[in-house]
Design a protein around this nucleic acid. Structure first.
Lengths: 159, 159
DNA sequence: TATTGTTATACTCTATAACTATA
DNA sequence: TATAGTTATAGAGTATAACAATA
């Protein structure tokens, strides 16, 4: 049994509600509530992918490459909301792990086209399985109807 | 007219939806939707506090100290979900700016009690004004009823 | 022995800028 | 000249560990 990967970086810090402490206006501040929920989501993600040397950003990158074969690094960076150099590091990681290939594009010698390898596809399927299962557990406090409503509201909010 | 403060650090990166790109399973992933919304919230906060040398974490710290006079640094760290050393840096920043005072506690010589100064209180009021106004603008895509529902769902989700 | 504050250090993430090669 | 990728560097943020003072 080979090692599955080392833990990466510090655990995501959660914002647990401290007993007997007043939070002032924060409880009515939408941005703060979103931050709390999002950090809880990171924690859930971390639990779901324990030992896989992955991160939310890497998972996002993997998913987007998988959904857009031949994608350019710059386009990936734009999708991730990061600079080109940031996209580089993610792609380097994916390539070193054998999850993604950089393929020359015949039409433009400057840019690479990114494609998932077989292994990358398998890895992504496994991640999706884990993440989806954990997503439900994460949102277990909500009913299915409430989850759906929450998704809908978030999508409307973000545009 | 004195300078109001320098911009701090890199702007928060947003995740703009890229035209014509597929996002695979991400659109159904609650954690991803939360992340998007939260980053949009950071951006809104940044716009609202332009030039004030503040950050969401600092704003949170200021609010919590204001709502809990005499608070301990460790307690603040717990509320922020950060280590003691992290709380130190925030408090150092607040103290240097004259927003907070460290007061000796008669009952325990080890710990400080944190209190907002007059200036800190004024600063917090101004921040609340800006943040609240911008919060509405940020969530302008939603009706008042939807905003309220969203808040409710987020609170239920986080517990 | 445990806890508070403190300091020093390391690591992650990300932005910026300069460089190259193609266009 | 403009753009894609690359590389090096710097900054913010935060965790960890060790230390002193106090409990």
């Amino acid at each position: 049994m080979k090692p599955t990967g080392k833990a990466r970086g510090p655990r995501p810090g959660s914002i647990l509600r401290v007993e007997g402490l007043s939070y002032g206006d924060l409880d009515e501040h939408l941005g703060y509530l979103l931050r709390r929920a999002q950090l809880a989501g990171f924690e859930a993600f971390h639990r779901a992918t324990e030992g896989l040397d992955i991160s939310p950003a890497r998972y996002t990158a993997l998913t987007i490459v998988g959904a857009n074969p031949g994608l350019t690094q710059s386009a990936l960076g734009a999708a991730l909301g990061t600079a080109r150099s940031g996209a580089m590091m993610v792609v380097n990681w994916m390539e070193k792990r054998g999850l993604v290939e950089r393929c020359h594009r015949p039409d433009d010698g400057r840019s690479w086209g990114l494609n998932l390898t077989r292994r990358g596809q398998a890895q992504l399927r496994e991640l999706n399985r884990r993440v989806r299962a954990n997503d439900t557990a994460f949102a277990a406090r909500l009913t299915a109807a409430e989850r759906s409503r929450l998704r809908q509201l978030l999508e409307k909010l973000t545009g």
